[in-house]
Design a protein around this nucleic acid. Sequence first.
DNA 1: CCTGAAAGCAGATGTCC
DNA 2: GGACATCTGCTTTCAGG
Lengths: 173, 173
Amino acid sequence: MTKTRSLLDETDKKILNILQKDCTVPLNKIAKLLDISKSTVHYRMKRLKSENIIEGYHAKVNFARLGDDFQAIIHIRAKYSKNYVEKVGKELAKIQGVWAIYNVLGDNDFIIMVRAINREELMNKLEEMRTSNLIERTNTVVIARILKEEERLFFETDIPQVDSTSALTSNDE
Amino acid sequence: MTKTRSLLDETDKKILNILQKDCTVPLNKIAKLLDISKSTVHYRMKRLKSENIIEGYHAKVNFARLGDDFQAIIHIRAKYSKNYVEKVGKELAKIQGVWAIYNVLGDNDFIIMVRAINREELMNKLEEMRTSNLIERTNTVVIARILKEEERLFFETDIPQVDSTSALTSNDE
DNA sequence: CCTGAAAGCAGATGTCC
DNA sequence: GGACATCTGCTTTCAGG
């Protein structure tokens, strides 16, 4: 009967939300928050990691605080060819400072995020792109201020409504 | 005299690069890699954290692996008013799934990153924006594939050339 | 600002449910 | 899949250079 068997249950999502916000919180504390045992948390985290749902644990650095920060968003139109998405992606990935590459639908083929230390450095990176024979055009937007940059948490809407008849009610006891 | 006194020395940057890539590596290992003592690594990490250069430690989740993933990049033109950057920023930040907000220079005022679980959800979020009287226009680009999304590491070029007289010139060698 | 040793605690493991 | 107890090893602290 309606065994939804999603990849993640609600406990997993709660754990992921906690770890996304701060992956240094002790198993102990997570266990208390979710009212399960420490080893269960450990077990689940290991599973999530091994299944590559958790891709890694990373420190977030505040570059704005360091000066020498010049970030931009570059819109790229590629020249079409067989497997151009992968090809162009690889080429872009090689450029120092390109930290995100999105293949997108619409006027452009890619939107990429770049960090440089100043205008000159950014221009050099742009030059690299413009001399590539895989790239048709670039359109660069300079970031004035980063107002937010956080984790992509799970929300209520992410949780499949497992309502059969009642389902809800029944707290543990 | 010209004591550059940068916020970060080379050791700090190396530590930050390691922790950005993986903040679970033991102090021990970092110490060996940098050929300094374990407690020095700890000392520096604490300083970086307390100075908010390290903003936090976060798990990275692979949403693409989970299905129910519909991400987009939205370009936003605001209606100008006093302090509109902050005002619009705050308004956008409230919308569930908006995980990054960049105030940018150019045709648009903001570029934001949004995660939804499907097209409908995204449309709802767009509707929220379009009914805001702070927002003039939106232009949405759907992400087909995330080819790269990593940390913004420090590079050679980030390390200030501590050249005394001329500043420019001096490539590393 | 860096180090080494000692102490405290959290993460890893294995067994049983 | 989850709980409990144990062990290992890392993080944290601190006194000294």
